[in-house]
Amino acid sequence: MSIGHRPSDETLTAFAAGQLDEGLALVVACHIEADQESRRRLRELEAVQGALLDAVEPIPMASGPNPPATAARAEPGPAAAVPMSETGMPKVLHPYGLGPWRPIGIRIAMRRVEVPGAGARVFMLRAGPGIALPHHKHTGVEWTTILAGAYEHEYGRYAAGDFDEADTEHDHTPCVDPVEGCTCIVAMTGSVQLQGWLGRLLQPLVRF
């Protein structure tokens, strides 16, 4: 897997600080899971937080240390088993509920990812080879991680593991790979105006 598109420093910093909206954070996490380089950057940014923790002005605690008398301490061992789910799904999606795939047109389907309390709407999109995804404009951001296949638009080709960080400035029409098709996970904030017949079909689903 050769990854060419990664989150900006601003986005990865906010992710490392735990300050991103949960929906947006989940899509970033899907990319990080697939990309060693972004994992390495994340570790570095976490190290910066460790250094800030060392340097910060301490504030006295209201109550002192109080370890439970009989607290069971964790033993090193195999990491908690992650429940099995569909193969090829990012592990970071395991804690979340997924809706059923619903066809929303010819050779295009969508499934909702349930992220309670998130400001962004999160969904997966699967499109057959050669399809042009609906042309749309929106008022917020639209972040996408490609899970399988690829698409292409004026900013380049995005293949499995790539992260596409689009803001309001972008107004694009991704074209799905003519051979592999494309499955991706998307988080959107703001409202979306979809255009064309496919847009009208998609609209009620995006709005949830």
Binding site: E22, L26, I32, E33, A79, V92, H94, Y96, V115, P116
Partner: peptide
């Protein structure tokens, strides 16, 4: 809201 985000960080940490 029963956020699950800390589990996401833990899963990434094991990678």
């Amino acid at each position: 809201i029963r956020s699950r985000l800390s589990q996401v960080y833990e899963i990434l940490d094991e990678e």
